[in-house]
């Protein structure tokens, strides 16, 4: 069809190019990752929130005291990905997991490189695998892996 050839087209790049400041609480956690340090914050009832929030999720009160946790932790729930998507952190089959780091009272969402779903179990202990070049980003932890591996 002639109209087909004369149709106008333009490339549309979709992006929301916001820049965010991480502030003193999240900034301290992210900066700590550069030194392989994982920190949380203590809330009013004494529990340790990891990764840290700027406020106590129960009361909204600001948090101030930092506490180092981990680096090992326990899987509290997990989901096995057979076919990783392009934006996933690993290209081979892996598990998403909530990981309660030693000393923490909340779960950190991350990937676990366990090789096979048969290796995964709620309650298993995992340790972080650190990136060589760390920049202060949650991805400074490549993933977690079974403690014995």
């Amino acid at each position: 069809m002639a109209a087909e050839q004369s149709r106008l087209s333009a490339t549309h790049v979709l992006e929301y190019p916001y820049r965010r400041s991480v502030g003193p609480i999240m900034g301290r956690f992210l900066t700590g990752l550069r030194d392989r340090r994982i920190s949380g914050v203590r809330t009013g009832d004494g529990s340790i929130v990891v990764p840290p929030l700027e406020y106590d999720p129960a009361t909204g009160a600001p948090v101030t005291e930092f506490v180092d946790v981990g680096p090992l932790g326990v899987v509290t729930t997990w989901a096995w990905v057979t076919t990783p998507r392009a934006k996933h952190p690993l290209t081979q089959p892996f598990a998403w997991a909530l990981i309660k780091l030693d000393g923490a009272d909340t779960g950190l969402l991350h990937a676990v490189d366990a090789g096979s779903a048969d290796t995964m179990k709620t309650g298993m202990r995992v340790k972080p695998r650190w990136r060589d070049e760390r920049v202060g980003d949650i991805r400074d932890i490549v993933c977690f892996e079974p403690e014995g591996s």
Binding site: R20, K87, W96, L109, H110, I138
Partner: peptide, 27 residues
Amino acid sequence: LTLQLDPYYVAPLGPDSVSMAALQARA
């Protein structure tokens, strides 16, 4: 849907909606 997530700790890891629901399902 991943774009709606916490941009500091979660979205950079790229978890998708089905994976997150699966974590809840096992729990």
